[in-house]
Nucleic acid binder design. Structure first.
Lengths: 215, 215
DNA sequence: CTTCACTTTGACCATACGGTCAGGAAATGA
DNA sequence: TCATTTCCTGACCGTATGGTCAAAGTGAAG
């Protein structure tokens, strides 16, 4: 899992490298375990085994289980926010929403664990990231609603409630990560292929863009 | 849900009543706690407190935590399947999918805990209900895909991939339960009102039905 | 070499958890 | 009334978990 092939940095601080690499290894293992078992079901021992480190070593880098979990969730939120930038600078809904669907579907495929941790966190009442929901997410949402409303006013799409449109986009794109196991089961137990993912993206975009009268 | 039409025994059976009522109380409490804390985060003591019963009493009615959890999940799956019948006997997508969205949105509002437990179970790899996914759910899905394909062949809607259409419907309708906390936060901390729910239903139906070329 | 900050880890601890059980209470039937 | 079945529950148990700690290891700077 974690080969020691990272000899890249000789000079620039071996110490710093060790810390960064171990934190990365632990965070990756934690993300996977939290996603598969939930916060309550995850144990520090499981994460340690997954990371290939003694449990006591985890506590050297992350004081508590909650602390480790918080870092995992923050990391996911940042990825999510970065991708959400696709929305901006788009001339209309076809480009903006199309790119947003593509980006979110790619995230669902690339970071399925992260998406599940996020979903689990929100489902349990967002005990850790409630402040993010009330500040960053709320601001982002309001901004995007304004953009969509502008497109409506400019006649570029039908007068759909922007809020519920966003919920539909979030729900649908994240479904491919959060319910990936169900989808795989309904796909004869096989993971979706590149073609399947392309078809999924195309289907979602087609339904949504036609649904909002953009095409 | 289940009226006391069970006149099978001589008397209405006080004993039977006690058992049924307590099982009901425990199942309701368990559903709520499992939804809020996840399987791993839920404790028998928490469920007992929520039910207002001593912990040992739970184990009198349900042998193990896993057993109790299994019953909760089965219960949810039955509700879900019952509502899925709306799809049948519909002359076309407008009626069939419209009724299905209405039914699933109602379930999301009425049984938000159940929806969360289901989502959590699937996200964690469906350790308990994998057989349901492979039999009942798969069969139901195939049947509905056939119905949608027939509507397409009859020219009642655009040629959309039925599978991804179903995923979009599941994702969007369940999102209002599973991510209810996020939605409430973005609604200034207030739960959605009757009007909000009506608007949500209308928005989803509008986007989907227009998106598949049914209207 | 010595020092010193950083890192590693086995052993350990207090707690909380799922589950058990014995014995009493309450309902039912004879 | 008594006998029997079902229901209730405080007290208890073995285990696993999150977290601690002291001692040892490591490597770079002086």
């Amino acid at each position: 899992m974690a080969p020691d092939a990272q000899i890249s940095r000789l000079r620039p601080g071996r110490r710093t490298d060790i810390r960064r690499e171990n934190e990365r290894t632990i965070l990756d293992a934690a993300e996977k375990v939290f996603a598969e078992a939930g916060f309550g079901g995850a144990t520090m021992q499981l994460i340690a085994d997954m990371a290939g480190l003694p449990k006591a070593n985890l506590h050297y880098y992350f004081a508590t289980k909650e602390d480790l979990y918080r870092k995992v969730v923050q990391q996911i939120f940042e990825i999510w926010l970065d991708a959400a930038a696709c929305f901006d600078n788009a001339p209309g809904p076809v480009e903006g929403i199309g790119a947003y669907v593509d980006a979110k579907m790619d995230i669902s495929r690339t970071y399925p664990h992260g998406s599940k941790v996020w979903a689990s966190e929100v489902m349990h009442g967002a005990p850790v990231i409630q402040d993010y929901l009330e500040t960053t997410l709320r601001d982002w949402t309001e901004g995007r609603i304004a953009v969509i409303q502008r497109w409506i006013d400019e006649g570029k799409m039908a007068p759909v409630d922007p809020r519920h449109l966003l919920y539909l986009l979030w729900a649908t794109t994240q479904h491919y990560a959060d319910f990936g196991h169900q989808i795989q089961t309904l796909n004869n137990g096989q993971p979706l292929s590149d073609r399947h993912w392309a078809e999924a993206k195309a289907s979602v975009k087609m339904i949504v863009l036609r649904g909002i009268g953009a095409i």
